[in-house]
């Protein structure tokens, strides 16, 4: 692992996208930034630009309209990248999995690396999930794990 990989592991930047959650998981993601949990201790920063992000945190069920946005955001992130799905809705659709406008979890839209179960998960679990995503990203950079699926077909989505 070169100096780049080390730098990346020391300070992974996070992008958060709400794909139709009830807000419960979103506020728990923001709660991680507050003084009580202070995720910036690990060098993690929440940023708004996908082109600077290493980890994508996705909360909520997907529908047709935001799946397009989600695919775009994922395609704009540079490799190596990792995706963390947070909360029952992002994992499978949760209590909404049979609703007419729900495609199910995030998995069907973009590949997911780490799953954080809970409704809503505790901030501790979200931090743990993000740390696991960093590990997965490092493994991928050093070639231990296959790179995330080819998304070339989605590039122009």
């Amino acid at each position: 692992m070169g100096i780049l990989g080390k730098a990346r592991a020391k300070s992974p930047w996070i992008l958060h996208f709400d794909a139709g959650a009830c807000n419960g998981c979103d506020i728990e993601v923001i709660a991680c930034l507050t003084p009580v949990y202070d995720v910036e201790r690990f060098g993690m920063m929440n940023i708004g630009n996908p082109k600077h992000a290493d980890i994508l945190l996705v909360t909520g069920t997907c529908n047709l309209r935001n799946a397009r946005v989600l695919k775009n955001l994922y395609a704009q992130m540079p490799e190596p990248k990792a995706v963390v799905a947070i909360g029952a809705c992002a994992l499978s659709g949760g209590v909404f999995h049979e609703c007419y406008n729900v495609l199910g979890g995030v998995e069907g839209i973009i590949p997911v690396d780490v799953w954080v179960p809970g409704c809503a998960p505790k901030p501790e679990a979200i931090i743990e999930g993000a740390v696991m995503a960093v590990q997965r990203m490092q493994e991928r950079a050093s070639g231990k794990v296959q790179p995330s699926e080819d998304e070339s077909e989605d590039e122009h989505a």
Partner: peptide, 14 residues
């Protein structure tokens, strides 16, 4: 709007 629409009203009938 429509990015977060799930269809809760229908689910409430089911």
């Amino acid at each position: 709007i429509g990015y977060v629409h799930r269809g809760v009203e229908k689910a409430g009938e089911r």
